[in-house]
Design a protein around this nucleic acid. Structure first.
Lengths: 217, 217
DNA sequence: ATAATAGTGTCTCTCAGACATTATTTA
DNA sequence: TAAATAATGTCTGAGAGACACTATTAT
């Protein structure tokens, strides 16, 4: 207890059907105890690289959006150690999930998250708050979807994350006039009965715009 | 270069007449090189305590608002060392400044900030962005004023920080209906010619509200 | 033709921004 | 009474939210 050590912890969100899920790992120590993915920061890597490394073989990093959240450093947050954790949240499309090789990881619906070590439950709670806030002002919801998606799918994503129904016409107007996404020529067809839906993608240059506008470095 | 060390850095804002100022310290190494106040985190103190400690004898901590900003950890941000810095921003009323005991500290107007070590200039820039953003949505400007203040003073604060003139009636309406501040019975009188202005203070229980609403833990 | 989902427009109300005059004090 | 600052209300335009019907496909 004489040294301060540093790690990163990532709250990875992904959407499965009708639930928002979080990636958790068994913490090893106790039987029914889980932890957020993460780990120590190497001397020659950035914090963000450390966070990305912790996601290797769990999600496809290329497709994952990553943003720093908050740094937790209360002296007593981890028993018998002085650990400071830089937390991140990540948004992963469902198709960017890697096949879980072992029982060493599991996606949990947010309402069914089991007991977590230390203050990780608090970190998850805060990450969710920030995610909801982000959706309200920034149309970032598409980060939870594959490259091409329908407006209904996007709206559904928003409804799941925000936990409330949205008006279809208002939603479409708002999203479209934000200018973050654009039409493609493709239709989603054969996916069920009903009229096929137009597919959209986010505008490649919108990424730069979002970064320019973004509140956090 | 085999260990990661941790410190905190604080961007302390204060208002002097017509300029927004930042507290800087000489960095010791070079002659015209300055640094943000801060320092290493002790093993038994929280990050916020470490930040507060760095402000001792510089401002009256009781009166200072402190909020975590971002954690900087690029491997190359500090030459020959692996230093991770948790940054904070602080808002200090002018009357909470302590008398500078030595030449070891100086308040600089934002437009005249001298050369800073490492990435401290970037940290200042980001802190200002966050401060401006905060004022736009949260009426936090009163943290730069003494306990009691007039609406004109508050508006002036906003104008300095945001760098633009504001409409008096719209400003008053907006601030008052946010319900963050309340009238006192006092008037500011004898301060010059002109009609005396009513003094306001922020509502004691508004502090709790702001914290509840706040985006950052 | 029926069931299922996609796609579209209008009205209303609230809120933000522009704007000028009266009120109260000191010198 | 002149100069200085405080205090106050209205109009207008833009945007947000409520709301229902038509279009296109598969079975």
């Amino acid at each position: 207890m004489s040294e301060i050590t540093l790690d990163v912890r990532i709250v990875v969100f992904s959407l499965d059907e009708d639930t928002l899920q979080v990636l958790l790992l068994p913490c090893g120590e106790a039987p029914d105890c889980w932890t957020l993915p993460g780990g120590p920061v190497q001397v020659d890597e950035s914090l963000e690289e450390a966070a990305g490394r912790a996601l290797d073989n769990r999600v496809d990093r290329e497709q994952v959006y990553l943003e720093q959240l908050y740094t937790y450093g209360e002296p007593q947050r981890v028993p018998a150690r002085r650990l400071v954790s830089v937390s991140y949240f990540a948004l992963s499309p469902a198709n960017a999930r890697c096949a879980a090789r072992t029982e060493s990881e599991r996606w949990y619906p947010l309402e069914k998250v089991p007991g977590l070590v230390h203050d990780h439950a608090e970190i998850v709670k805060y990450a969710l708050r920030r995610l909801r806030y982000k959706l309200e002002y920034s149309a970032a919801g598409f980060q939870l979807l594959p490259d091409e998606f329908t407006l209904s799918e996007l709206q559904h994503t928003y409804e799941i994350v925000l936990g409330e129904k949205l008006d279809k016409r208002n939603f479409r107007r708002r999203i479209l006039q934000s200018n973050i996404i654009e039409e493609t020529n493709h239709l989603r067809t054969g996916e069920g009965q009903g009229r096929p839906a137009r597919l959209y993608r986010y505008r490649p240059d919108a990424v730069a715009e979002v970064k320019a506008r973004r509140l956090f470095p």
